[in-house]
Amino acid sequence: MKHVIAVIVENKPGVLARVSSMFARRGFNIHSLTVGPTEDDTMSRMTVVVDGPEMEQIIKQLYKLVHTVKVTEFEPGTAIEREIMLVRVNADAKRRGEILDAARVWEARAVDVGVATITFEVTGPPERLADFLQLMNSYGIVSLAKSGRIALPRDQKSNKKQLKSA
């Protein structure tokens, strides 16, 4: 089962290396990891999607890193989760119309059109991206770039589980 955790870390050089090194050393599997700025420029937010059952250890080991300030695990369905992807699909003249019609339904934006391919930008919850990919598979995916997941808790305090370090 995949778990999504938000890790607030001090915005310092090397903090990503510290986190990824800890995951590697402890044998924890990272599905995806994103890092970026927050509303407080001394802090960064990491969103980590992890596989596996050792959530308690993962959270505790994250807290052991001196630059980790706060770790929050999202219960399923309690967070707004988004990914972005760029996907280039085969689209010869014959099938171009059909592909664009399908893309419209998914709110996928055509961001580049070539002689034999179309590149779409899709944003949304991970499941939506997966569904779109499945659909495009039948046309032939030429290349794919996908961001990791970002997430914020929904604005309902009772829905999130916060794990304090002490």
Partner: peptide, 8 residues
């Protein structure tokens, strides 16, 4: 000043 380091 280490906001993330608060040993119990």
């Amino acid at each position: 000043r280490l906001p993330g380091y608060r040993p119990a």
